[in-house]
Design a protein around this nucleic acid. Structure first.
Length: 762
DNA sequence: ACGCGACGCGCC
DNA sequence: AAAGGGCGCGTCGCGT
């Protein structure tokens, strides 16, 4: 198969190639690489790569070129500058843009016939040395710096950082085809990968992903003559997708897409460089403190584990009996017991202690809620093990592993479109779920010498958004008067005075009765926004379902605007198949367009008979299909309760009709419709706040740098002496996007030497 | 040995 | 009858 790339290699060289490959093979993830799976033979692996690239990509050779001659690149860049726009894409050793080296880059501009690939760091597998037939990084950088045209990329968050860190090329992004695609298809089940978008665009051909072609083989090992078409095509595809996206906007005569386009232009594109600066700035970590914490928490866990095992002593006989009955040594209940195994815990709880079913939904669940209800020595100890174990493995031990050795800081990746609602997600590590209740963990993060953290968060951001969206007089009043919103809501719901529903009385003394009402109003209100049902609300408040139902009715009556918001969101989503935020971000909700019940007439059903060409009586059967459907729909509509519904569905199935119940996914989409408008608008607001902060010259001059975004909270760093002023400016910038709202917004600032450790600044 | 889904749980 | 929105990650246990 193919030409053996290693045929001419000496034995010794083969061994060396193998070691190089082995390193890279263990680094990368593999996805279905059938040609490589079975064999570790290097010849086969590389021949597979070659065969695949040849099979799929050789037909594009005429549109691609690899460039090692500086003069050719210089000419190409002149072309780029003439046309004013170009697409650029990088190939790298991995997916970490700060640590993984660049292997080459590709360019395309429409005034040239071909897309080009510029190889930089490929290895010649014959000599196992740097391939001499490529351009040096320094020369490439010098030439790239001549570009004055606007750059189009697919996922610029990655390429911009690679170009900056691995090549020293600092450039700006003009258009990002991935961001555009994600925004315009948000919520639909489509992939935004370059190859998938392009394949959909072309319709007739599947363009394979990096993994499909190269699997675990890093790109520097792919010989340039096999690599360049793949790489060049990335730039070409990006360009064509860009053209298609321009067309999409051009054709939108009714301006249906104006809202999303505005989010694209005014939020998501500007946010890119801001987030890149945050990621590159990183955040400081106290490794010695981590080590101290590790010891403390390890002790805590050992102690709790010992307590858990000791509490099982009374069950020793039962446990041994269970093991004997269930496979002895192979029993799932291992010896010693694995305290972190939910399966083993379930056996202990339900089969040995026989605590009975606690939660009907998860009859053998071992979650914290269930353990708290069982409440014996064992579950108490287990909860301690869980809690401290989580803290140890997820934070105390994991965070130091993420420290970049070059900067001694953690450089999280923030994905601006990581959540469908428009929120950021954060990964490697996730800095948006660092424990706050626990007072130890956040202190792992410390400000630079002479600097302090400033944290500025929107005070009750989502309730204010709800009030803005619903235009409810009670809510507007509470916020404009600066009253406690939930106390106001509680007072309106229970026809009491506002003062009676506050957590404290006029003198600042605790007011338990008021606190209770306020708490109920709050839980109920938040529950409504999340689509929580009365049952669950009752559970979380510790009241009966009846009381919960009553509470909900009271709150909805007290706040008619909230009721309208809930109803309108669902109605809008049902009519249009999507919802929008205040700023025009859209989330499609395909489930809203489903029928409550879907009918499939199986082969043994009446429908099958219509295909019998001899028996004309089946024609009559065909006509009856809709009738049958109608009949079942009527019955399902009138059915009360799960039992009746499933009985009807069973009956239908006996008749050869399968009925799919979509009520679950539709209800889920309804909850999402409501929540997305609220959460998504909040996300837009925070992002706009970030953009304002970034644009503020005074903040920049004061040495302020943004570091983290945690949904409704922004955290930055600045010299301690400038902290106070920076806090004021931050707050101003964050509030600017909502200055015209009927609801006043508010931000709270905190200054910290470590995260979670307050600092007084003059 | 490794990928993957389920579970459980940290945050807003 | 039953249904809380949005994330990422560690562990387990299964499957290949």
């Amino acid at each position: 198969m193919g030409i053996g790339l290693f045929e001419n290699l000496s034995e010794a060289s083969q061994v060396e190639v193998k070691s190089v490959l082995k390193k890279t093979l263990t680094k990368r993830k593999a996805v279905d690489v059938s040609l490589m799976k079975k064999s570790t033979n290097i010849n086969t692996v590389m021949a597979g790569v070659q065969a695949l690239t040849h099979e799929h990509l050789s037909k594009y050779e005429a549109r691609c070129e690899f460039v090692t001659d500086p003069q050719r690149l210089r000419d190409y860049i002149e072309s780029i500058n003439t046309s004013g726009y170009y697409a650029i894409d990088t190939e790298t050793m991995g997916l970490n843009p700060m640590l993984d080296d660049i292997v080459g880059f590709s360019l395309y501009t429409p005034s040239e016939d071909k897309a080009i690939y510029v190889p930089l760091t490929h290895i010649d597998i014959k000599t196992l040395r740097h391939d001499v037939r490529q351009m040096s990084k320094a020369v490439a950088l010098e030439l790239l710096n001549e570009i004055s045209a606007k750059a189009v990329m697919h996922n610029c968050m990655f390429d911009l950082r690679v170009l900056k860190h691995q090549l020293g090329f600092n450039t700006k992004i003009y258009w990002d085809t991935m961001i555009f695609n994600k925004l315009f298809t948000n919520g639909k089940e489509v992939s935004s990968s370059l190859k998938n978008i392009y394949s959909a665009l072309k319709g007739d051909e599947q363009f394979l992903s990096f993994d499909k072609y190269f699997g675990k083989v890093t790109f520097n090992l792919v010989p340039i003559q096999h690599a360049y078409v793949y790489a060049s095509m990335d730039a070409l595809m990006t360009w064509e997708i860009y053209q298609h996206q321009l067309q999409l906007i051009e054709n939108d005569k009714s301006c249906d897409l104006a809202g999303i386009l505005s989010v694209y232009r005014n939020i998501e594109m500007p946010i890119c460089r801001i987030v890149i600066e945050m990621e590159d700035a990183g955040v400081g970590v106290d490794l010695e403190y981590c080590e101290q914490l590790r010891e403390v928490y390890q002790k805590k866990i050992e102690e709790a584990e010992a307590r858990a095992l000791a509490s099982l002593k009374p069950y020793e006989v039962e446990i041994n009996e269970y093991r004997l009955e269930h496979g002895g040594k192979k029993c799932k209940l291992s010896d010693p017991i694995k305290i972190n195994s939910p399966i083993q815990i379930a056996i202990l709880l339900y089969d040995i202690m026989k605590v009975g079913v606690i939660d009907n939904k998860t009859p053998r669940g071992t979650g914290a809620g269930i353990l708290e209800k069982v409440k014996n020595d064992f579950t108490r100890a287990l909860l301690d093990v869980r809690e401290n174990g989580k803290l140890l493995s997820t934070y105390i031990e994991a965070l130091p592993k993420q420290v970049n050795p070059n900067t001694n800081r953690i450089h999280t990746q923030f994905n601006p479109l990581g959540a469908v609602t428009g929120r950021f997600s954060s990964e490697s590590p996730n800095l948006q779920n660092i424990p706050s209740a626990n007072k130890d963990i956040r202190k792992i993060f410390k400000a630079r010498e002479g600097y302090c953290f400033i944290s500025c968060d929107y005070s009750s951001q989502e309730p204010r958004i709800v009030s803005q969206l619903s235009n409810d007089p009670i809510m507007i009043n509470a916020f404009t008067e600066g009253k406690d919103y939930y106390a106001t809501l509680g007072a309106a719901a229970y026809h009491k005075k506002y003062e009676e529903c506050r957590e404290t009385d006029a003198n600042g003394n605790p007011n338990p009765a008021g606190k209770k009402i306020r708490e109920r109003a709050k839980r109920c209100y938040l529950g409504l926004c999340y689509g929580m049902q009365a049952r669950k609300l009752g559970e979380t408040l510790g009241v009966t379902v009846e009381e919960a139902v009553d509470l909900r009715q009271r709150v909805l009556k007290a706040s008619p605007g909230l009721k309208m918001l809930l109803d309108d969101s669902v109605e809008f989503a049902r009519r249009y198949g999507y919802v929008e935020t205040i700023w025009g971000r859209r989330r499609y909700l395909p489930a809203m367009e489903l029928d409550m019940y879907e009918f499939t007439f199986l082969s043994n059903s009446t429908e099958a008979m219509i295909f019998d060409p001899i028996d004309f009586s089946t024609l009559e059967m065909y006509d009856k299909r809709d009738e049958i459907k109608e009949k079942y729909l009527k019955r399902l509509e009138n059915a009360r309760g799960f039992k009746q519904v499933s009985a009807i569905m069973g009956e239908a199935r006996a008749e050869g009709i399968s009925i799919k119940d979509n009520s679950g996914v539709i209800a889920e989409a309804e909850r999402q419709a409501i929540n997305t408008r609220v959460q998504g608008s909040a996300a837009d607001m925070t992002k706009l706040g970030m953009i304002n902060i970034y644009k503020n010259k005074e903040l920049r001059d004061l040495g302020f740098k943004m570091l983290l975004a945690v949904h409704d909270e922004l955290i930055g760093e600045c010299p301690i002496e400038n902290a106070k002023r920076c806090g004021e400016l931050m707050s101003e910038c964050m509030l600017a996007p909502v200055k015209d709202f009927v609801i006043p917004f508010k931000c709270d600032c905190e200054f910290m030497s470590r995260w979670g450790e307050r600092l007084d600044v003059a």
